[in-house]
Design a binder for these strands. Structure first.
Length: 259
DNA sequence: ATGTCGAATAGGATTCGA
């Protein structure tokens, strides 16, 4: 089972790119972030025509997540537990059954800038709720994948110019500590389970020719429960997608599970 | 702040968020 996470930065602006990519790359599951669309406006028809089941959790203008799957999706839930008053669409879950059942969680973690400030407080509070959900998933002792745009640069080696991000909400010590608290529960960050060393990025800013200079950061991740980590056979970043016409500022990051 | 982009509002340029 090949699962890709992809922040598409607007489904209206990126529908053609998404359809081309689905046709060519044929992920079994695609977890999308920043669809920036209400559910009713999501182009589910053309995606279904390519053989995908579609589940969305959108809102007007910003945020929004979706799961596309060639296999049926079961037990779909929307919204990260822990704050009934949180109206931002950043979390969706579903179970997909291949040779094994896998619980899939698609997430768009808050950016948190400027930091410090209320947006950074929201980011850290959201990460605390994520930790609680992660802990509950561990207790189930089943394969679970939490994948998406984490807006977290885990280590200095995950940025081309780490010093430029030192004060940023994506790299501040509080952010990285909150990320490690989730890993320390027993989750495996799939890419670092497979690839070592610097120079691997999943996001390049549109400004200042960041992609041409390879001035990137690695912020799109798959976190695996122990039972999912047992099934991990590969993980890679589809960096070439950043060089296409009218690209997203993020690229797909893939895992392959023996499931 | 920026060698930028997408969406909303409004019916073009401005604002927000990233």
């Amino acid at each position: 089972m090949r699962i890709a996470t992809f922040n598409i930065n607007g489904i209206k602006a990126r529908a053609e790119l998404l359809l081309d990519w689905l046709s060519e790359a044929r992920p079994d599951v695609a977890l999308l972030q920043e669809i920036k669309s209400v559910d009713e406006a999501f182009p589910r028809g053309p995606i279904e025509d390519l053989g995908y089941n579609v589940e969305t959790h959108g809102q007007k203008g910003f945020n929004g997540v979706a799961i596309l799957s060639r296999l049926p999706l079961e037990d779909v839930t929307r919204g990260l537990p822990g704050d009934a008053g949180d109206e931002q669409a950043r979390w969706i879950e579903a179970t997909v059954v291949g040779t094994r059942a896998v619980r899939l969680c698609g997430l768009y973690l808050p950016n948190g800038n400027p930091a410090p400030g209320p947006k950074f407080d929201y980011k850290l509070a959201w990460m605390a709720r994520l930790q609680a959900r992660a802990s509950a998933l561990l207790n189930a002792e089943e394969p679970a994948v939490m994948a998406g745009d984490y807006n977290v640069i885990p280590q200095a080696q995950d940025a081309a110019r780490p010093e430029a991000w030192r004060e940023d909400a994506l790299f501040r010590p509080e952010t990285r500590a909150a990320f490690r608290r989730i890993l320390n529960l027993g989750f495996t960050e799939a890419f670092r389970g497979r690839v070592q060393g610097p120079g691997h990025y999943s996001f390049w800013d549109y400004q200042a020719g960041a992609y041409d200079r390879n001035d990137g950061i690695r912020i799109d991740h798959h976190l695996l429960s122990p039972q999912a980590a047992d099934l991990l056979t590969d993980c890679w970043i589809e960096a070439e997608m950043r060089g296409r016409e009218k690209p997203s500022d993020h690229v797909p990051v893939w895992i392959e599970l023996d499931a």
